[in-house]
């Protein structure tokens, strides 16, 4: 399993939302993509799953993504967008079963393998007892778990989630990060965009910092989430808190405006993000 971006640029209308981004991952790891609003995080993620056009090259398992059919790409990369809606009153099991779509052919009747994959995903997310309930009956935290279960059922080696902890209370945020870490332990590469610097520093193996569409840093949280960089990117002062072997980063106060968010923000807005 591997994912590789080289010189990726994304233009949204007249705005250059992402500029010459290069990074690669060839092992199971939890990668946090951080940066202020309009930095180009969502655009980069959407390009990785083939939702928007880009320049440069994206390799998925060493194959250029444009050479993969939509179904082949879906079998290799699973995506959770920011928009987390289920438009109809679907049962939890039916939502999770949608993750099996790239593996189904013909009329799409679920095979035994599909049913088993859904059972495993429901079990991993502790949703087995809720599987016959409808999605809209669940709490926000339970709904987030259902959508992650759909990602898991897709059985792709790479998982991309755009701000999955948004709108969740601290307990569910930690629970969700723990689940993502479990997926890494199962051999997946997980790329997740985050606004919570504390969660990013605590849970991610690796951090990519994106600002104004440019990839500024790529390294461990400790190496790249420095006081200077956070001030430059977010315009905030941070405090490092060590608890045992864990290091937490807490934004404490504003120290001035973050750099103007040039074209990227307009681009993302135009894209409905």
């Amino acid at each position: 399993m591997s994912i590789e971006c080289s010189g990726v640029g994304i233009k949204l209308g007249k705005c250059q939302a992402v500029k010459h981004v290069t990074f690669a991952s060839g092992k199971p790891e939890l990668i946090g993509l951080i940066g202020p609003n309009g930095a180009g995080k969502s655009s980069l993620m959407r390009a990785l799953v083939g939702l928007i056009n880009f320049s440069g090259q994206i390799l998925i398992d060493e194959v250029p993504s444009f050479e993969l059919s939509a179904m082949e790409l879906a079998r290799r990369v699973a995506f959770l967008p920011q928009e987390r809606v289920v438009h109809w009153s679907l049962a939890v099991r039916d939502v999770v079963m949608l993750g099996r779509m790239p593996h189904q052919t013909g009329l799409g009747r679920p095979s035994q393998a599909d049913e088993e994959a859904v059972d495993r995903a429901l079990d991993l997310m502790s949703l087995t007892d809720l599987q016959m309930r409808t999605f809209d009956e669940l709490s926000g935290g339970e709904q987030a778990r259902v959508l992650i279960a759909r990602l898991v059922a897709q059985e792709a080696n790479t998982i991309i989630a755009d701000e999955p902890v948004n709108g969740l209370d601290p307990a569910h945020q930690i629970g969700l990060m723990r689940l993502l870490k479990q997926l890494v332990a199962q051999g997946k590469t997980v790329l997740v965009s985050l606004h919570d610097l504390s969660l990013a520093s605590q849970w991610c193996d690796r951090i990519l910092i994106l600002n104004n569409g440019v990839l500024l840093d790529d390294g461990t949280p400790k190496a790249v989430m420095t006081e200077r960089r956070m001030r430059e990117v977010y315009g905030v002062r941070i405090q490092n808190v060590e608890v045992g072997k864990q290091s937490f980063i807490i934004p404490t106060e504003l120290v001035g405006h973050a750099k103007p968010m040039s074209g990227a923000s307009e681009g993302e807005e135009a894209n409905g993000l």
Binding site: V49, A74, P81, V86, P102
Partner: peptide, 11 residues
């Protein structure tokens, strides 16, 4: 049902 982005990402 899960929105157009998810539908496209499912192939």
């Amino acid at each position: 049902s899960l929105g157009p982005d998810v539908a496209r990402s499912l192939g």
